[in-house]
Simulated assay, not measured.
Amino acid sequence: MNTIISLENERWDQLANRAMGRADMDTVTHIIALNSQLAPAIRFAATLPGGLVIKLPDVKHIQAPTIGVAPWRR
């Protein structure tokens, strides 16, 4: 399992984009769920403190985002 260190005042979506190259809602939700060991005050905070070791999910377990794709191309 991969991990990443959070940066001071980084948001979950920024961390997801930096670590996995995508910041869609499914990716962020998977990352937060995988890090249930963090205190609720941190898991649901607007920004993260720096230096946290954050577990990352395997990208193949997350469905690719379909927002912005025409329905006939899905």
Rank of each mutant, 00 (worst) to 15 (best):
A45T: 09
P40R: 05
V69A: 10
P57R: 02
T66H: 04
A64T: 12
P49Q: 10
R43G: 06
T27N: 04
L38V: 04
R18T: 09
A23R: 14
I32Q: 14
A16K: 02
L56I: 11
P65E: 09
A64V: 09
G21E: 03
V59W: 00
T66A: 08
S36Q: 09
P57A: 05
G21Y: 05
Q37P: 00
I42P: 00
A64Y: 05
Q14H: 10
H61W: 09
G68T: 06
R18K: 09
N17Y: 15
I54K: 02
I67L: 13
A45D: 11
R18A: 06
Q37A: 14
P57W: 06
A23T: 11
L7W: 03
F44M: 06
A23L: 01
E8W: 07
G51M: 06
P57T: 08
K60H: 09
A33Y: 03
I31D: 03
H61S: 15
A33M: 12
R43A: 12
D13L: 03
P65T: 07
D24A: 07
V28L: 03
M20Q: 13
D58N: 15
I62M: 06
L34D: 02
D13T: 11
M20Y: 02
F44S: 11
L38C: 08
P40M: 04
L56Y: 10
R22P: 02
F44W: 15
R11Q: 13
A46Y: 07
R18P: 02
D13H: 15
D26L: 15
L56Q: 10
A45I: 08
A33R: 15
V53G: 02
G21Q: 02
D24E: 11
Q37C: 03
I42S: 01
D13Q: 14
P57C: 05
H30Q: 14
E10Q: 15
Q63H: 08
N35W: 06
D26V: 01
N17D: 12
V59S: 13
H30T: 08
H30P: 00
A46T: 14
A16P: 03
P65C: 08
P57K: 05
L56M: 13
A46I: 10
A46W: 04
Q37W: 01
H30G: 00
A19Q: 04
A19R: 01
M20H: 03
G51P: 08
V28D: 06
A16D: 06
A23E: 13
V28S: 02
D58I: 11
Q63N: 07
A70N: 02
L7N: 08
P40Q: 07
Q14S: 13
